[in-house]
């Protein structure tokens, strides 16, 4: 029995682990950390698997030993317990043995930490992300008009295959920036400047991100997307962003909405137009975004109208919090809301 356990446990464990890994990486979650899509999360996963295997082997071995002990030494009539008080050699042995096991995971850990301090490639793209209750703002210094800032919100657009370094700020409480498939999390803390681990996305696509530090009532609904584009698409997007929208065709809903947007321009900005409010999210190229309301609803006409009309029916905003007003209380009628929605979704790169 003991021999069997000694030999088979590690093998069994590895087999089980392989099965678990296969199941996990096949899991369809868009936030699966075992399905990395960047160099950063890939390097984390290597250590992740190592520590998972080590922990599982130790765990199964100790559990198996315990089961063996309690079966072997269950009370039997006529067999008294051996009065053992201890064994110094054994105890020293199992004080030292864990140190070696810990070195197996400790050394790669230190190596990884040293790696995070390395400088990124020279063509690194610098982005600033600011957490707000309950949305994300992204600023690309120097990429805007005349070398100014290019600002967008809730959907971070980045080029594939280039180092990305995100500097993190917060406007109110502690938030945490996390895109499980692209980069591990780092907190956004008011009054401090944190830098996210540099990462380099493998392939274009839409990745899910979410605030990972409890930040108040609507914390669960503070999400975002990372849109990884090819270099060419990324440039197109940035140029269109700076160029601003073409004037909508007169007489259309979008044209009426562009006038009606004056109600919104105190808080929201659309680059290339008169709307330059900086209290709420920047809405330039809104029609390009896949989601609205900080990554919680698909960007459809119906959702957008509902959101503009009454954000509080969609996001739990506590009383007194600084957030977008409710507009379907008579401030705007349904037609006006529909016009503004049409205008926003006309803001595309084409």
């Amino acid at each position: 029995m003991a021999r069997f356990l000694k030999l088979r446990t590690p093998i069994l464990t590895v087999a089980l682990m392989a099965l678990l890994l296969a199941v996990l990486s096949a899991c369809a979650s868009p936030q699966n950390t075992f399905d990395p899509k960047s160099d950063a999360t890939d390097s984390i996963l290597t250590i992740y698997i190592l520590v998972t295997v080590v922990a599982s082997v130790v765990g199964f071995a100790v559990l198996a030993a315990m089961v063996w002990l309690i079966i072997k030494f269950r009370a039997k009539p006529g067999v008294p317990a051996k009065q053992i008080h201890g064994n110094t050699k054994l105890e020293i042995a199992w004080t030292i043995a864990p140190i070696f096991i810990l070195l197996i995971i400790g050394i790669p850990t230190m190596y990884w930490i040293a790696g995070t301090a390395e400088d990124p490639a020279p063509n690194v793209l610098e982005v600033e992300a600011t957490g707000h209750q309950w949305w994300f703002e992204f600023t690309y210094p120097g990429m805007g008009l005349d070398g100014g800032d290019l600002i967008t919100a809730n959907e971070l657009v980045i080029p594939v295959g280039r180092d990305i370094r995100v500097t993190l700020y917060s406007d109110d409480v502690v938030h945490s920036f996390w895109v499980p498939q692209l980069v591990g999390k780092t907190d956004m803390i008011p009054g401090r400047t944190n830098v996210l681990q540099t990462f380099n996305a493998y392939e274009p696509g839409l990745y899910y991100g979410q605030c990972a530090e409890f930040c108040g009532t609507a914390h669960a609904l503070m999400r975002f997307r990372v849109n990884v584009k090819t270099s060419a698409d990324f440039s197109t997007w940035a140029d269109a962003h700076n160029a601003g929208p073409a004037a909508p065709e007169p007489g259309t809903a979008a044209a009426r909405g562009s006038l009606g947007f004056a109600t919104c321009s105190g808080c929201h900005a659309i680059s290339g137009t008169a709307a330059q409010g900086r209290i709420g999210p920047d809405l330039s190229l809104f029609g390009e975004r896949s989601t609205i309301a900080a990554g919680i609803l698909d960007n459809t006409d119906a959702n957008l109208k509902a959101w503009i009309g009454d954000v509080r029916s969609i996001k739990p905003i506590p009383e007194g919090a600084r957030f977008m007003p409710t507009f379907n209380d008579g401030t705007l009628d349904e037609g006006q809301i529909a016009d503004i929605a049409a205008y926003l979704n006309s803001l595309t790169a084409e």
Binding site: I47, A55, W112, G184
Partner: peptide, 26 residues
């Protein structure tokens, strides 16, 4: 003994800062 040991082992996992950057607050 058995359950606490499992908790201890998962604790060692997030002593690894790399892993913790994916596990923290999950």
């Amino acid at each position: 003994i058995s359950m606490f040991m499992l908790g201890g082992l998962s604790g060692i996992m997030h002593a690894v800062t790399a892993v913790d950057s994916q596990q923290q607050d999950t």
